[in-house]
Amino acid sequence: MARYILTRLLSLLISLTVASAVIFALIEIIPGDPAAFMLGINAQDDTIAALRAELGLDTSPLERYFGWVSGMVTGDFGTSYTYRTPISEMIAERLWISLPLALIALALSTLIAFPVGILAASKRGSLTDTIVMGFTQLGVAIPNFWFAMLMVLVFAINLRWFSAGGFPGWDEGLFTGLKALTLPAISLALPQASILARVMRSALVDTLDEDFMRTARAKGLNRRQAIQRHALRNAMIPVLTIIGLQFSFLLAGAIIIENVFFLPGLGRLVFQAISQRDLIVVESVVMLLVFAVIVVNFAVDIAYVLVDPRLRRQG
């Protein structure tokens, strides 16, 4: 067991190293000079050179790569080219929006998906099942940014219940903050809820067919009791796996929604940083997201093995 964990740890380190190199290389070859971008069209060449020197862009890529990696190991992400503030501070500030947004969306999606999935599974084959599952098919097919646009049209422009975008800051009060995140969270949650409901249903249906469920029914439990006592627990593994996947997706995948609603979150930070060629910010945020996924995967792998050593050679 210890040896297994050790090899997995080694491969984790290798993955992270490869990832950092890939990210750095990918971002390094993007054409466009941050200094030229910042100084605009009337800038003279010597001015651009001076700014490049000020930003530390005149050193070799290899030097910058090692500077970046060694900084990150000690928790120092460097300083943004455009904003001239420490990147770790910027990320922390943006996380205060992205993290709550992802959590609310996830909570919403779970709250919708569980009852819907259970309902459909327990009435498998019925008209209810068909209708509910039809809606989830639709939910999976709707592009979330389009759904967001429609919600802005209805709830922000026509009804004026919500503002169409922006984030007033948590200083303005919890309610104001949550209100600003409502429409974005719903747009993010809808497709996720549909997916989760479908997974929930099929996982439940699968367990309903298994022997222990027949035994449970034979023991005199009715369908509802059987589902509550036995099937749900067994269906949780695929459902939790999907929830875990969705969380990392929501954190990174909210870029478009953050742009539609103009939320100053992590996604918009990267999007802006790319167009401003604030490359060091892009590198750090992408690395952070990749790091999060790789480490979570690692933890999940280890957890599975601890629970069931037979799983070791799969995957």
Partner: peptide, 8 residues
């Protein structure tokens, strides 16, 4: 965003 500007 122009849509947000309109709504604001």
């Amino acid at each position: 965003d122009p849509t947000a500007a309109f709504a604001a």
